[in-house]
C-alpha cells in the first residue's frame, strides 16, 4: 500500500520521501489536534470527578 503510493508519486526519490514524511506529519497533527481529544472525551477514562 505505502509502496504503491510511493511508486505513484511524482519526482525524484528525495521528493517522494519528503512528500511521504510531510503527509505522515499532517496525519499526526490531525490525530493530536482533533481525533485523540475526541476519542479521549468519548472513553472518558481519566475523569477524576466524583459522582
Amino acid at each position: 500500500m505505502y509502496g504503491w503510493i510511493y511508486r505513484h508519486l511524482p519526482g525524484p526519490a528525495a521528493l517522494r520521501v519528503f512528500i511521504m514524511l510531510a503527509a505522515a506529519a499532517g496525519v499526526v497533527v490531525l490525530l493530536f489536534g482533533w481525533v485523540f481529544p475526541w476519542v479521549s472525551a468519548e472513553i472518558d477514562y481519566f475523569n477524576p470527578e466524583l459522582g
Partner: peptide, 17 residues
C-alpha cells in the same frame, strides 16, 4: 500494512494522552 498503521496510531494515542 493497515494493521501496522493501526498499531502505530494506538502507540501515538498513548503518547498523546
Amino acid at each position: 500494512e493497515l494493521m501496522i498503521t493501526a498499531g502505530v496510531i494506538l502507540g501515538l494515542f498513548v503518547v498523546w494522552q
